[in-house]
């Protein structure tokens, strides 16, 4: 019971890091980016290559993965994504990002092969850790909760306490008024997009160990990201975080107690939430 809860929380915090960038993209620019998972996949592959082929320490791989995904995010945002902010329908954005996903998947297959990638974790992240007498948890999952939780805290303070954060929130609440007040919403968005991609890359790097990594990664987890956004709403850190935790725990519990229903329950929950509360359970109402 405790183990399931613990696994669920670990999965949830990881999911938060993976998906929080998407909630900003959708919330701030109203852009449907189904290719978010591709940035995570990039981070994962960077980690696999650096760790297994060049023997770089795991903790150094993480920032490198985030940097690589963030850089890819900046490049794609400046060259392609920004052309679709104005005048493109959601359908165009969906098609465009599906196109990116297809390309990323084929490239990953071409360069890395279609097999599952395995990473060799350093010794201190392997095995079990005893928290209390009788409660043993995986060391890596504890590490996940700590690192992703810290990331969430940093993000929360960045959003609530910094000037950039208040600009971002203003942009999400009402982009037009924010522009009128002299906030360069496009610039804020470009930076946030890069940060979101970098976070996805970090999440991808952290996730190789428990999610696995193969070229179908972006499609396999796309729905999870969308659910986090749909349930968590946008414009806060706590919304997506709570959504990720609930989703992670539900998914872990569902797999453990009701394996025959598979992913059916979480899809049903997503549809139900979308229908009953289109703005998300924990979100502030989006402007558009």
């Amino acid at each position: 019971m405790v183990t399931v809860l613990f696994d669920g929380i670990a999965w949830g915090t990881l999911l938060f890091v993976l998906a929080v960038g998407l909630s900003v993209t959708l919330g701030l620019m109203n852009f449907v980016n189904l290719a978010h998972g591709a940035f995570a996949m990039l981070g994962g592959y960077v980690t696999v290559v650096m760790l297994n082929r060049f023997g770089v320490p795991f903790l150094l791989c993480l920032p490198a993965a985030a940097l690589a995904a963030g850089a890819a995010g900046v490049i794609l945002e400046r060259t392609l994504y920004r052309r679709l902010y104005e005048g493109a329908s959601h359908l165009d954005q969906v098609l465009f990002s599906i196109g990116l996903v297809f390309m990323a998947m084929a490239l990953a297959d071409f360069i890395m092969g279609s097999q599952q990638q395995i990473v060799h974790m350093p010794a201190f992240l392997r095995g079990q850790v005893r928290l209390m007498p009788g409660v043993e948890v995986g060391a890596y999952r504890l590490f996940l909760i700590a690192s992703c939780g810290a990331t969430a805290l940093v993000l929360h303070f960045a959003l609530v306490r910094t000037r950039f954060g208040s600009r971002l929130r203003a942009g999400v609440d009402n982009a037009r008024t924010a522009r009128g007040l002299g906030i360069d919403v496009e610039r804020v968005f470009a930076l946030t997009f890069a940060a979101g991609s970098a976070l996805a890359g970090l999440g991808g790097a952290l996730g190789v160990e428990i999610l696995g990594l193969d070229p179908t990664f972006p499609v396999k987890y796309m729905v999870f990201f969308l659910i986090v956004v749909a349930v968590g709403g946008s414009g806060t850190v706590t919304g997506p975080l709570l959504a990720s935790l609930v989703l992670g725990v539900c998914d872990a519990a569902g797999k453990y107690y009701l394996p025959q229903t598979g992913a059916f329950i979480i899809y049903a929950v997503m549809v139900a939430v979308l229908i009953l509360k289109p703005q998300g359970l924990f979100g502030r109402a989006a402007a558009r």
């Binding site: 679709l84 493109a88 098609l95 465009f96 196109g99 297809f102």
Partner: peptide
């Protein structure tokens, strides 16, 4: 056989960019 998805993806991106 495996990589035709790449061309499909590229075509989609071009389609959205230039030929809606």
């Amino acid at each position: 056989p495996q990589y035709w998805e790449f061309w499909l993806g590229a075509m989609l991106v071009l389609l959205v960019m230039f030929a809606r």
